[in-house]
């Protein structure tokens, strides 16, 4: 593979990434790990993928402090939301949209959505049990949870 091919590919990947970021207003770079975050006062340190899935399927689940988790999703149009739904729930954007419409009619409630990161950060800090996810670079000041025993900067981290 010559260098010009590589550069063209890099440019194309860059364009796509930039397009997605502009389109959704997300601050997530394509390959950046997703950090699962809670407020700084939470005693929660880690969580398994299975439990995380329960939380974001809106099944009642308590945190390590004994309080119910309050899952808060990113805005529906965000790239990080799409990646999180795919990795944790195993559902594409189309499937998750259908899923929650259907669950409502079955009598179940979806998690609430924070329209901006500012709102999300405030919810995490102010609401006991609030849990969400952010690009790792945007998670400063929040409690970043260990997933399946691995930190976000671990090469084997589940939400890379």
């Amino acid at each position: 593979m010559n260098s010009s091919n590589l550069n063209r590919r890099q440019l194309f990947a860059s364009l796509i990434g930039s397009a997605l970021a502009l389109q959704t207003g997300s601050v997530l770079a394509i390959a950046e790990p997703i950090a699962v975050v809670m407020g700084g006062r939470s005693g929660q340190r880690s969580i398994s993928l299975d439990r995380l899935r329960r939380v974001f399927l809106a099944l009642p689940t308590n945190d390590d402090d004994g309080r119910p988790f309050v899952p808060i999703n990113q805005a529906q149009a965000s790239v990080v939301r799409a990646r999180f739904d795919q990795r944790v729930l195993g559902m594409s954007a189309e499937v998750i949209a259908r899923h929650w419409v259907d669950q409502r009619l079955r009598g179940r409630r979806p998690p609430r959505t924070a329209p901006t990161q500012a709102v999300l950060r405030r919810a995490l800090q102010e609401l006991p049990g609030a849990i969400s996810y952010l690009p790792l670079s945007a998670a400063d000041g929040l409690r970043v949870l260990v997933i399946e025993g691995r930190q976000p900067n671990d090469a084997q981290y589940a939400l890379r």
């Binding site: 805005a75 929650w100 979806p110 998690p111 609430r112 959505t113 924070a114 709102v119 405030r122 919810a123």
Partner: peptide, 9 residues
Amino acid sequence: AALVLQDEQ
């Protein structure tokens, strides 16, 4: 202005 959360319905 304090905290605005959206519902999906």
